[in-house]
């Protein structure tokens, strides 16, 4: 596919196939088009040419699509006056009936090291804690595809390993992960297949040819 904005092309001739239960980490320099690729997969950005198929069809932007797909990109705007726990509870409410693999809210808060701050307002948290909360919001609801834009940002090295384990567990239950990342160690810890975007094209790192 070919993707761009009004005055310039970001991705040229990108071809990527991801199997169910697979974790793919897309890497590349700043401005390479990693976030734009995720945006296309979420159906929020239309390619100029080519096709995008997610879970067997084009991103439909309807209830069934968003029940299956979870996107973590920029930090969300938090509801003022709602606690961390209430935000996670809200996510589960909006995805009822909760059917499929996901981590229960209380356990997620524990695993993500937010137990002491469950009643805090998100804006009172550090940037790393808010990033943990954003990721927790995507994992406390069932989904089949996780789209993560630089999930490692603001996270300490210890928790990156923890997160890699959670993603492996997610994929082990049949979920698919496509993430943009700059942290190759994190990608390796998650057992991800690494893809590189350079000059608008996608390649396997260390090769010059197109990726699978």
């Amino acid at each position: 596919m070919r993707v761009g904005h009004s005055s310039f092309v970001v991705l040229e001739d990108v071809d990527l196939t991801v199997a169910g239960g697979e974790i793919v980490a897309v890497t590349g320099v700043n401005g390479a088009g990693k976030s734009t690729l995720l945006s296309c997969l979420a159906g929020l950005h239309r390619p100029m040419a080519g096709t995008v198929a997610v879970l067997g069809g084009p991103p439909r932007d309807d209830a069934a699509f968003w029940r299956a797909v979870a996107l973590v990109a920029d930090e969300p705007t938090w509801y003022p006056g709602l606690s961390l726990h209430e935000h996670l509870e809200l996510v589960r409410l909006t995805h009822e009936p909760v059917q499929g693999w996901c981590l229960p809210t209380d356990e997620l808060i524990e695993v993500f090291g937010l137990a002491g701050r469950a009643d805090a307002v998100p804006t009172d948290l550090s940037s790393g804690q808010r990033q943990r909360l954003s990721l927790a919001a995507a994992l406390t609801r069932p989904s089949r595809l996780l789209l993560l834009d630089e999930p490692e940002q603001s996270l300490d090295p210890g928790f990156r390993k923890e997160l890699a384990g959670v993603l492996r567990e997610y994929a082990g239950h049949g979920g698919t992960v496509v993430m943009a990342t700059h942290d190759l160690d994190f990608a390796a810890a998650a057992g991800a297949r690494l893809m590189l975007i350079a000059d608008g094209r996608m390649t396997v790192p260390g090769t010059t040819g197109p990726g699978p």
Binding site: A63, Y79, P80, G81, L82, S83, E86, E89, L90, L93, T94, H95, E96, P97, V98, Q99, G100, W101, C102, L103, P104, E107, P142
Partner: peptide, 27 residues
């Protein structure tokens, strides 16, 4: 881990908004 499915049907936006409204604390 499999989370328990609720007996309720698809969520209603009105109920979600009510959840948010009741918990928000406006100064």
């Amino acid at each position: 881990m499999i989370a328990a499915a609720t007996a309720a049907g698809p969520p209603q936006v009105a109920a979600i908004r009510s959840f948010i409204r009741k918990r928000r604390r406006r100064p």
